[in-house]
């Protein structure tokens, strides 16, 4: 193999080693939505996907298919998030991870009752759905 291959190979390798998001690729930095979530529950085909609206200590709130959905964290078998992978497994999530999820939700300061009521009304709901 000619030696001229080695440098491009190394550069290619190194450039592939930059991990983590940039502001261009990290959607919550440049779009109004919270981070995308894909939550799987025990049981076949039980899954909720949507935008992360709010994170509480034991519950997360998604906007999924134009429905506001409350999900107890303990019910989540695997919770995957855009560009981050599985952060919730078997109903467990680290406190630091939970804090981070709160910050990249649409409403990091929390959903006020007024805003929640508006969201529900906009989606034709009287109350949030519950999943699973």
């Amino acid at each position: 193999m000619p030696r001229s291959w080695m440098l491009p190979v190394a550069i290619l390798g190194l450039s592939a080693c930059i991990m983590g998001p940039s502001t261009r690729t990290f959607a919550p930095a440049t779009r109004p939505q919270g981070i995308g979530a894909d939550l799987q529950f025990r049981g076949k085909n039980k899954r909720v996907q949507g935008e992360l609206l709010e994170v509480q200590n034991s519950v997360i709130v998604l906007l999924s298919a134009n429905r506001v959905v409350r999900v107890p964290i303990r019910a989540i078998l695997v919770g995957r998030f855009s560009r981050r992978g599985a952060l919730i497994q078997n109903g467990r999530v680290g406190r630091g991870t939970l804090n981070w999820l709160k910050l990249v939700s649409r409403f990091p300061a929390g959903l006020t009752p007024e805003i929640q009521a508006k969201l529900l009304a906009a989606n034709g709901q009287a109350a949030p759905d519950s999943a699973p």
Partner: peptide, 20 residues
Amino acid sequence: RRVVLPLAFALSACFIYRNV
């Protein structure tokens, strides 16, 4: 090995963490 080694070296240095 002349291909594998530099690639392995490059990948082993895969610790550049980009953050926001």
